[in-house]
Amino acid sequence: MKKRALAAAVMLSLLSGCGPAKEKKAEAPAAGTTPVVNWRMTTTYPSNLFLIGTLAKRLSDTVRTISDGKVNLKLYEPGVLAPPFETFDAVSYGAVEAGWSTPGYWAGKEPALQLFASVPFGPPAREYLAWFDYGGGKEMFEKIYHKHNIHSIMCGLEPPEASGWFKKEIKSLDDFKGLKIRFFGLGAKVMEEVGAAPQLIAGGEIYQALELGTIDATEYSMPAIDEKLGLYEVAKHYYFPGWHQQSTFFDLMINLQAWNKLTDVQKAQIETACSSNIRYGISEGEAKQVAALKRLEAKGVHIHTWPPEILDGLHKAWDKVAADMAKKDPTFAKAWTSLQAFRKDYKTWSERGYLKE
């Protein structure tokens, strides 16, 4: 009986094209196969919103492709798993594994995170990236998030935004006094300094707030995005340049325990997808603004450029805001000092290397 069983096993092995020794080796890789990762990713922006939303969808698709389906970030629209402004807590507590947002929304958690989103009168994309990657920004950024059980990766970067939509023309700094305006990040602090009444409203609620008169003005994003929200229908005065957001970072927040469970290859796949997203955000963001501006002008929008005296006044207000925040928060002071020092040194290159437009 034993001989017949052994003969049958050998015959089966021969028919399958391998001997007993080869069959034993083939079992080893199966035991060490990397498990498939299936994460839930909530977002603060609708996925159909140009760039700031579509970049999240692109990230999900790219990670799935380069991991050959082994790493999946299933994207959920705002409010399905967590309200937009509760994304930070949802990721920190592990209610979801990942979240798509911008660090500037989490001033209430860590004021310094705003410096990793956008900075009034701050650097353009190339300079911002240089500071983050090679000027010490990334190390500070990760340390801040790790305190809250989050590992975050810079995963998108957009070109300058518009300065905002106003129902009435702004002719002097005094016109900001008492103005009810939706504003984001550190720019909102500047608005407050010049006498405005800023408030943070989610993107999907801005149109109605303007229409009902809850606010008199709003900033949100760049022309190609603002157009999608239909803001031109309820406010006709559109101002440039976006002094408050010359470039804006978006990040992929990941629960720290979930991140630590990944293999080195899986981590590299996510980081690579994010790097690709940054390049794509800059190139598509720059390419789509011209056509959007032309369409807005055709719809009767009055496009304005801020006069030097107003920009000077806003800049002075920002300098005061930054100094006050640095005094109150050591982490903010450290990041702000680092960015200022880098920008000062960077001028020795940028003023020589780039043509003045």
Rank of each mutant, 00 (worst) to 15 (best):
K25S: 15
S92L: 01
A317T: 07
P84M: 09
V119M: 13
K344Y: 06
L49R: 05
K334Q: 15
T65D: 10
W349C: 07
N260C: 04
L73A: 01
P84L: 09
A317E: 04
P124T: 07
A8C: 05
L252Q: 03
I282L: 12
G164K: 05
K177G: 15
D133G: 06
S172R: 03
K143N: 13
T34W: 03
Y207W: 09
V71C: 04
L314S: 03
M222C: 11
E309N: 12
I254T: 08
Y134H: 14
W259M: 01
S60D: 01
D264R: 05
V63R: 01
T87R: 00
A217R: 02
D61M: 06
I303C: 11
A21K: 14
G213C: 13
G94S: 08
V301H: 00
G136P: 07
G135K: 02
W318C: 10
K74Q: 12
I206H: 00
A235I: 01
G137L: 04
G69A: 08
S163K: 04
Y232K: 10
I52N: 10
G122L: 04
P160K: 11
F116T: 07
P159K: 09
E357A: 13
G242R: 05
K57E: 07
A56V: 05
I181Q: 07
L252V: 08
T65W: 01
V301G: 00
V37D: 02
P29Q: 08
N255G: 07
I170D: 01
T34S: 08
R343V: 01
W165F: 15
L59E: 02
T337Y: 06
E139T: 13
G136T: 11
S67M: 02
F342D: 03
C18F: 15
G69P: 06
Y280E: 10
T248P: 00
I66C: 01
Y346K: 03
A5F: 14
S47D: 10
D264I: 06
G99E: 00
M325G: 08
V290H: 14
E110F: 04
A197V: 15
W243Q: 08
V194L: 09
S118K: 13
M140W: 10
F184P: 03
A323Y: 10
L51D: 05
A5N: 12
N38D: 12
A21T: 14
L55T: 08
A291V: 14
F240S: 12
K344T: 14
A7P: 00
L115R: 03
E86H: 11
E233Y: 00
A95S: 13
G242V: 05
P241V: 03
E227M: 09
V71L: 03
E158Q: 10
E297P: 11
A98M: 04
Q114R: 14
L186T: 05
S276G: 11
I66P: 01
W100R: 02
A202L: 11
L73Q: 00
